[in-house]
């Protein structure tokens, strides 16, 4: 590398450092305000750092956690995400194996319907999905995962099937000749091989379910259950004096887990998220 390009690289590093700091500013601003006392959070003082008069410590966080059903919503969100993702991973990978190994009109139709469902925007099925869910009683956090399995199946089946086409048949045939039935073959041979794809699909579906707003908002019985995005929207939509401090603290509390998971599994997340894009 020439001297000139080394110097240019240094300048770019400095520029990008400034840009990245600016990039983090919106989140930093919420954090800053979540540490202030209620009267100090106004549109005019939003950009000021908390000082000794306005610093509230972690009061807002304590308030957010102890009131407004925050912990409950957090629990519902976590449960819905975990149950839906596990169900999706197990069921769709089994279906994907079946439709790549058994070739007939029926399995082909399922495959193309799955791809088709990826294109359909949610608004198209919004109203009718809610009434279907209502009539089957799928309106609580314990069984909404069935809806997520149905609506999220497309991408998962597509990604699993794409991987399975590259798995050599001989391994499975050997297992079957040795006396494994298809179920044993699947769980002992195929399932372990799926690990990298499982991680990618799991991350994609988890991000979708955790952040999803409209589906749980319409399907769940709102008077009893709220997920985190619903709670945030509820805060915003409620008229009258909104307590800004606990509100900002709630936003921070929903971002923290995402950021921590991201920092620890960045490699998988970036790989998973882009795998979905490049294939889709």
């Amino acid at each position: 590398m020439t001297k000139r390009s080394i110097r240019a690289n240094r300048i770019w590093s400095v520029v990008l450092t400034i840009v990245s700091l600016a990039y983090m500013y919106p989140v930093f601003m919420i954090l800053m305000n979540s540490l202030k006392i209620e009267t100090a959070i106004t549109t005019n003082s939003a950009f000021k750092l908390p000082n000794s008069d306005t610093f509230a410590g972690v009061d807002n966080f304590v308030n957010a956690i102890s009131s407004k059903g925050f912990l409950q919503s957090f629990g519902y969100s976590a449960f819905i995400t975990v149950s839906s993702v596990l169900l999706i991973l197990l069921c769709t990978s089994m279906l994907a194996w079946y439709i790549t190994r058994v070739k007939n009109f029926f399995t082909k139709s399922i495959y193309y319907l799955c791809i088709f469902s990826m294109v359909v925007p949610f608004q198209m099925v919004m109203f009718t999905l809610v009434s279907t869910a209502d009539s089957l009683g799928l309106t609580n956090p314990w069984n909404i995962c069935v809806i997520y399995l149905g609506f999220g199946a497309g991408l998962a089946v597509f990604m699993f099937a794409g991987f399975m086409k590259s798995v050599p048949l001989e391994i499975e045939e050997a297992a079957m000749i040795d006396g494994c039935n298809p179920l044993q073959t699947y769980f002992k041979i195929i399932f372990p091989m799926l690990r990298p794809t499982m991680i990618s699909v799991g991350i994609l579906e988890a991000m979708w379910v955790w952040n999803d707003f409209l589906l749980p908002y319409l399907v769940l019985d709102r008077t009893k259950y709220m997920t985190i995005p619903m709670l945030i929207q509820y805060f915003r939509g409620s008229y009258g004096r909104v307590e800004m401090g606990p509100m900002m603290a709630s936003i921070m509390l929903t971002i923290f887990p995402i950021v921590i998971v991201y920092l620890f599994s960045q490699k998988y997340i970036i790989k998973g998220v882009t795998a979905g894009a490049v294939k889709g």
Binding site: C91, Y98, I110, I147, L149, A153
Partner: peptide, 12 residues
């Protein structure tokens, strides 16, 4: 292998 996802897919 097929029925769980297919049922959910039909419903959802």
């Amino acid at each position: 292998f097929v029925l769980p996802t297919l049922t959910a897919f039909i419903i959802g």
